[in-house]
């Protein structure tokens, strides 16, 4: 067992983990932050996407023990003051979710996409950049629209 200390959603936390414990397990099971989901076991689906030191990562592919001193933001921490993040708001406005299981990962990926690609995202860019996030409900139509709108809204705030 290893003790790991990190900052999650602005809070200092510390936990005893096994060498094989994944970041997503630390978040879901130790910290009970269940908004980050596990949709697969091969890092394909993107449901577990969080921000690690400001960058989007699939938390099922990161060992918890490697996160010593790291800063992690999960979907629960995206809107700390109770006000929705513009990307969350855009997903709601554009009916970009149905069952909602892939949604936290989609939103975290979308915010990271804006960081990497800017606020003016054309359809082609959004679709290419969403390669690592799978949705089964929406046919991606409204997700793409929401990300484009959310990216523009992020510029305004």
């Amino acid at each position: 067992m290893t003790r790991v200390s990190l900052t999650v959603n602005g809070q200092r936390v510390s936990a005893e983990v096994e060498g094989r414990t994944l970041l997503v397990q630390l978040l879901r099971e130790h910290l009970r932050l269940t908004g980050t989901h596990v949709g697969c076991d091969t890092s394909q689906c993107g449901c577990c996407t969080v921000h690690l030191n400001g960058k989007g990562v699939k938390s099922c592919t990161v060992l918890a023990a490697s996160c010593e001193g790291a800063t992690v933001t999960t979907i629960e921490g995206l809107a700390p003051e109770g006000k929705l993040h513009p990307m969350q708001e855009a997903f709601r406005e554009h009916h970009a979710l149905q069952c909602g299981f892939c949604t936290p990962g989609m939103i975290m990926s979308a915010v990271d996409m804006v960081r990497r690609k800017g606020n003016e995202l054309d359809e082609h860019t959004v679709r290419e950049q969403l390669e690592g996030n799978i949705c089964r409900c929406t046919g991606y139509h409204n997700i793409v629209k929401a990300i484009q709108a959310g990216a523009v809204a992020m510029k305004r705030t």
Partner: peptide
């Protein structure tokens, strides 16, 4: 669902 407050089976 957009804030991570849903309650899925797991």
């Amino acid at each position: 669902l957009i804030t991570g407050a849903g309650c899925f089976s797991d």
